[in-house]
Design a protein around this nucleic acid. Structure first.
Lengths: 336, 336
DNA sequence: GTGAAAGCGCTAACAC
DNA sequence: GTGTTAGCGCTTTCAC
């Protein structure tokens, strides 16, 4: 039951000009006399006229909109990346259309389809869960840039991410420097980012001659999963926990404290991502911090570039994460 | 530089039928022979055909999309409300177009304008900051429901919210029951929700005969602002802090601990909202919990109803919050 | 069942 | 500077 909004024709008749002139005036063409422009603007205002983006995009065959897929709105990581995207994209006169996949990977694909139906000019995928062939198909159809992952090489597709392997190694290095050897990794589950972080852990452990202590407990990226994984891990009496991300680390901390162990005296905990809330004193979480807003900004820049230059070679950009030492890690205490 | 995607015409020629028939087949009309339908579906698949939503919405004059404005993606509260909206809306074959206002109230209005240009059929505003006259204008133009606020009465506009005054009173009641009287409120700043919570605080304090102890410290809804406000508040030597929301409460807790005061022995802290992360043991935050997903679901239901029934009388629905007692509040210790 | 034709609201040549 | 015209991709009568 749509109310019929005023159209460009209504504005034209009211202003006593043709609709093409209205169109010209509204797009800011210089070849409209001041008096006409004046009358048109007035008429539009009086009528409460608002351009119909559907009609416009149909005519110009551009939507000036880019589609953004966010895996999970609950993880503050993604909000911060999105900030970066929005800022950059707005500056260049684009809008964003945002969707979140929720828990169901199938849904994710359906949602992207919706985005494409709306004729978005590009796709920014933040932590997607799409299989390679689907990704390839999308990238062939529309400029696509992936944030947070770089495991799938697809022509015409850019990626922006931090080096998770390197980041994980920093985490382990830090713990080893503090004297830890019984370092358990709580993994983030079955996704590429988590795999990379687990790989980095294994690599670093091996390089430090701690291969025998490698111990990965399957977990997930939510606080509840971090809690559960930490409970499991505790039976191995670790002195340090490297958790796949900050949110799960918050859960892990809860589990450790529930077991009446002190942090960091009995168990050190280090996370990954650098979410803002992790910095608050009560959390006070040591972590590997990604430059989140930068990730978003860079993704948008690649997008904008690719829109005007579709054949550009695929790029993979890495930003570096940094170790932020706070209160949840400390020197290992003399073991029994 | 848009790639030209296949159109309905391409599908038609490939299937050897007219484009009207393709349209009929794709919308699932029964009056298409099975053999034609078959050929059309195949042709569409081979071509990778995807309907152009802009053209479609232009022709049918409906977008089947509802616009959602979220104040701040960083606050987990809004992600949870959004979950509820999405679930409900998808079930009824609608898509959502999501925007976040960011920090600038002006931008908020501009973003809604974009939404409207895209011909969204309704507007769900989650914690907006729009003045009454703007709201009235929007609601007159398109079905609108406001979540989280109920302070502005506008014809044709529904609202779904919890009763912040009542919730704030529950918080104060809880603290008074524990024996507190020097209860300071860290406000959430200059917005209606925060005002309501502050009002509830004042009311409850007065009713408990504690009018002389009423003390509102101006703050905000972010963790950093909660931290700053708590620092200010501490000079008054309160035994309890009622903070405007959970996120700010997390900041407040940090400030209290930084001042070498114990929680809850020296200072009790209670928040508002019931964000999930607040429940983790390390945070362990006592709070007034809103049924967040319900808020979203209800908002969507009202929206859907109003779309088919634009003249429906404005409704204001309240859901009730509940006191969740956890570890940051405790009995007042004997004062000096 | 199927096709022809008109039209949704807009822009973009092209004339004048 | 301004108006006329055609057409973007789709749906929808209305004939047949």
């Amino acid at each position: 039951m749509p109310t019929s909004r005023p159209t460009i024709n209504d504005v034209a008749t009211r202003a006593g000009v043709s609709k093409s002139l209205v169109s010209l005036a509204l797009t800011g063409s210089t070849k409209v006399s001041d008096v006409s422009r004046q009358r048109i603007v007035e008429a539009a205002a009086e009528l409460g006229y608002r351009r119909n983006a559907a009609a416009r995009s149909l005519a110009v065959r551009r939507s000036h909109t880019i589609g953004v897929l966010i895996l999970d709105l609950h993880n503050p990581v993604f909000a911060e990346i999105l900030d970066g995207v929005q800022i950059e994209v707005r500056e260049h006169g684009y809008s964003t259309m945002l969707i979140s996949g929720g828990t169901d990977p199938q849904l994710e694909q359906a949602e992207i389809d919706t985005l494409l139906q709306f004729q978005v000019e590009g796709l920014i995928l933040i932590a997607h869960r799409l299989p390679a062939h689907v990704l390839t198909a999308f990238a062939a159809e529309v400029p696509t840039v992936v944030v947070t992952r770089d495991d799938i090489a697809v022509p015409n597709m850019d990626s922006v991410s931090n080096d998770d392997v390197a980041g994980a190694r920093m985490a382990v290095d830090h713990l080893v420097e503090l004297g830890h050897s019984r370092i358990v990794h709580l993994s983030g589950g079955d996704n590429p980012v988590s795999h990379a972080r687990a790989d980095g852990y294994r690599l670093a452990m091996t390089q430090h001659g701690l291969a025998e202590h490698i111990h990965v407990v399957p977990g997930g990226l939510t606080d509840a999963q971090g809690y559960a994984a930490a409970r499991d891990a505790l039976s191995a009496a670790p002195t340090a926990l490297f958790v796949a991300n900050d949110v799960a680390a918050i859960g892990a901390i809860a589990a450790v404290e529930n077991a009446n162990l002190r942090i960091p005296e009995d168990v050190s905990v280090i996370g990954y991502d650098g979410i803002r809330i992790g910095g608050m004193r009560r959390l006070n979480l040591t972590t590997i911090a990604q430059p989140l807003a930068d990730l978003g900004r860079l993704a948008a820049q690649h997008m904008l570039h690719r829109i005007n230059n579709r054949a550009a070679p695929a790029t993979r950009q890495h930003v570096s994460a940094t170790l932020v030492i706070r209160g949840t890690t400390g020197p290992v205490t003399t073991e029994v």
